Simulated assay, not measured.
Amino acid sequence: MKPPTAAAEDYLKTIYAHTEWQAEPITPKALATRLGIAPSSVTEMVKKLAADGLISHVPYGPLTLTPAGRLQATAVVRRHRLIETWLVRELGYTWDEVHDEAEVLEHAISDRLLEAIDTHLGHPTADPHGDLIPAADGSTTPVPAVVLAEAAPGHSGTVLRVSDRDPAILRALADAGIVPGSLLHVVDAATVRLPAGGLHPLAPDAAGAIWLTS
């Protein structure tokens, strides 16, 4: 099988990422929204990916990765997240700046350079946002987590992951000291207590972007 195109890799990566932190599979409509493209374009690519044995799909039904598709998806996810980690640790980028750069570089760097970056960084297991970096064989070790917006009042947990979809949210949370590794106490869906003891309000989008240990 020939390697997937950059566009196909983006599809596979998005399908994979959709179910990393929740179990509901992605629909073609949701995939089109996530990728910012027309549903008709998604339909054509879905047919190609299914024909190549990379996804399983029935008309109007959700999309799931086959074992071969998952392996391809984790390979590009691994490249993306190692690049993000490298940009933050070594080149002075902040966590709200790295996504778009990694989107370009993930399709360009060689496997040799990727593994050199991995070795240089000490084989990190998570990127700056807390998303897991798959091993070379595609494996990860998930940790039970709960979205802060859905956590019960009184719940205390360590921030495992912050969604990187909205750079403005990342900047605001960083200013408040809310990053992976921070310990938070949930007062309610809109308020947390920080490690220093102060209360910090959260907009609904921010509360829905934070995952805590369960």
Rank of each mutant, 00 (worst) to 15 (best):
D96H: 13
S214H: 14
S214A: 15
D188R: 09
L183C: 10
G122F: 11
A176L: 10
I178Q: 03
A17H: 05
R193L: 01
H120W: 12
A207E: 01
H123M: 07
P62E: 10
K13Y: 12
L194N: 02
W95A: 14
P39N: 09
T64I: 12
P142S: 12
P142L: 11
H57L: 10
V98A: 11
S139Q: 13
P3K: 12
V146H: 00
D127Q: 09
A152Q: 14
P195L: 11
H107W: 04
A7Y: 10
Y60N: 11
A196N: 15
T213V: 03
T140M: 12
Q72R: 15
H185P: 01
Q22Y: 03
I15S: 09
L35Q: 05
Y16M: 04
A30W: 03
D175A: 14
D175F: 01
S139T: 15
H18L: 02
R34G: 01
R89V: 01
D188L: 09
D188C: 09
H185G: 08
R70A: 07
T19P: 01
V77M: 12
E84P: 06
P204E: 02
P59Y: 01
D52G: 15
S139A: 15
L12T: 05
H80C: 06
W95P: 14
L199K: 05
G138R: 12
D100W: 04
S56F: 03
A108L: 14
V159W: 02
T158P: 00
L160A: 01
T74Q: 02
A174Q: 13
E44V: 15
E106V: 08
V88H: 07
T27K: 08
P25E: 14
Y60T: 08
R89I: 00
H107K: 07
L12N: 04
H200Q: 13
L105Y: 09
L35Y: 03
K48I: 14
T94E: 15
E150V: 01
R112F: 05
